[in-house]
């Protein structure tokens, strides 16, 4: 379960204007073999997108990070920046561009 409300970097604020419609789609790639399950990405994601999968292991018998709520992702890349073992990265796809082509 996401631990809402007791996160270290809670940067959620009520927006003054309605947010513009999403122009980009994000895909989070997690290299499960490389992941150490340290939980830093889970702690530092401002939108509760990630969680440690307590059911699965990699071959080093470590639980790894998993995406639980991709729709909430804003593509801020905080998870990618903080990950000490470079196991998680964000790929973005421009929906607007794809529509026009």
């Amino acid at each position: 379960m996401p631990r809402r409300g007791k996160k270290m970097l809670n940067s959620k604020r009520t927006p003054i204007l309605a947010p513009p419609p999403a122009q980009k789609e994000y895909q989070i790639k997690i290299v499960t073999e490389q992941c150490d399950g340290c939980e830093l990405c889970v702690e530092f994601c401002p939108c509760d997108v990630l969680e440690i999968d307590k059911e699965s292991f990699n071959s080093r018998m470590l639980h790894y990070a998993a995406v639980i709520d991709l729709d909430a992702c804003t593509g801020c890349r905080q998870c990618e920046r903080i990950c000490p073992s470079v196991s998680i990265f964000v790929l973005e796809k421009d929906i607007a561009q794809e529509d026009s082509s």
Binding site: Q34, G37, C38, L40, R81, I82, C83, P84, S85, V86
Partner: peptide, 20 residues
């Protein structure tokens, strides 16, 4: 980066500085 050389303890910020 050589991803398989990140031998630090899980969660140690040395790896973060390297990527930065």
């Amino acid at each position: 980066l050589n991803l398989n050389r990140f031998i630090f303890c899980a969660g140690c910020l040395i790896g973060t500085a390297i990527t930065a």
